[in-house]
Design a binder for these strands. Structure first.
Length: 287
DNA sequence: CATATGTCCTGAGAGC
DNA sequence: TGCTCTCAGGACATAT
């Protein structure tokens, strides 16, 4: 499930195609339902053919391929999408191909097993709306002040709020849990009860966890879906502190056991000792 | 407006 | 063994 570190790894992996020209785009034959493509392939073709790739950026969990026309191809992997220069894991779920006039890299591929991902061609104005109005500050650089400003009055549990891309862009279910563990904050805490120093720890934890995960090229979970642009696994799954660690001993306190709960229909993993709510002492004698 | 829930999708794994 | 069921969680549409 590509989140910021995985998408950033994909972005870095396809940087070598900057400077290449697009010779054609194609939607390969696919037995499964087609993914969302906007605009339709014939109009898409006309607008991108012959343009040059001038930059490749990341916008939250999306890869943005900027073109000399000032438009941009926005790739959104969602659950199982991959952005590849190498051969895809299977031919059957190949969803989109960008052919290039490059000697070293002939094509960029978008592969997606479950098909929830999207490929969109946006004008610079549309991209600006996405960046400035729909998405919050990027998680890699968000400050404690920005966290407090955007979520400080929310009634939601902090773990659920961290997944809101309009509040902060790039965090998903896995890294929300990792961040709150590093910050030492109970994932069920209502945002409005979080102190300044806790927002600071959350901001610090966000930066630390995401940079660490980028260093290891993201997390390839047991289903093996996520790969980098060269179809290689990530390594951060071996460094998870809580995610998918239910039942193992917490590495932070060395005493408690990692627990799993469900919040907003999603798994949350945490250490009940390191991530306790502050203030009220646990009531005695009711166990 | 803020927040909660349902939906899309496929393959893996559980259980019978 | 082979069937059915449940689950995984990105973002968005719809409901409260």
């Amino acid at each position: 499930m590509p989140e910021l570190p995985e998408v950033e790894t994909m972005r870095r992996g396809v940087l070598p195609i900057v400077g290449s020209k697009i010779t054609s785009v194609e939607r390969p034959e696919c037995k499964c339902r087609p993914i969302l493509l906007k605009p339709r392939i014939d109009r898409f073709q006309k607008r991108v053919d012959g343009t040059k790739i001038v930059a490749i950026d990341r916008l939250g969990k999306r890869v943005v391929i900027r073109l000399s026309s000032t438009e941009a191809i926005v790739l959104e992997p969602r659950m199982t999408g991959l952005v590849l220069l190498a051969d895809p894991p299977s031919i059957e779920h190949l969803r989109f191909r960008i052919s290039l006039s490059s000697k070293s890299h002939r094509e960029l591929l978008f592969w997606d097993r479950r098909g929830l991902g999207t490929v969109q061609l946006l004008s610079s104005a549309e991209l600006e709306i996405l960046e400035n109005e729909k998405l919050g500050p990027d998680a890699l650089s968000i400050t404690a002040q920005q966290f407090a400003d955007r979520l400080g009055k929310s009634q939601r549990a902090v773990k659920v709020a961290l997944l809101d891309q309009s509040a902060v862009a790039g965090i998903g279910n896995l890294y929300a849990a990792e961040i709150l563990h590093v910050a030492g904050v109970d994932p069920t805490t209502c945002c409005h009860r979080i102190s300044r120093s806790q927002w600071q720890r959350i901001a610090d934890g966000t930066s630390l966890v995401l940079q660490e995960a980028i260093k290891y090229e993201g997390s390839t979970l047991s289903d093996g879906t996520y790969r980098n642009a060269l179809n290689e696994s990530g390594g951060y799954q071996n460094h998870h502190r809580v995610y998918d660690c239910e039942g193992s001993k917490c590495s932070r306190c060395g005493e408690a056991t990692i627990k799993r709960i469900v919040q907003a229909q999603r798994s949350t993993f945490f250490c009940p000792k390191c991530q306790r709510k502050r203030g009220i002492h646990p009531s005695l004698g009711n166990q």
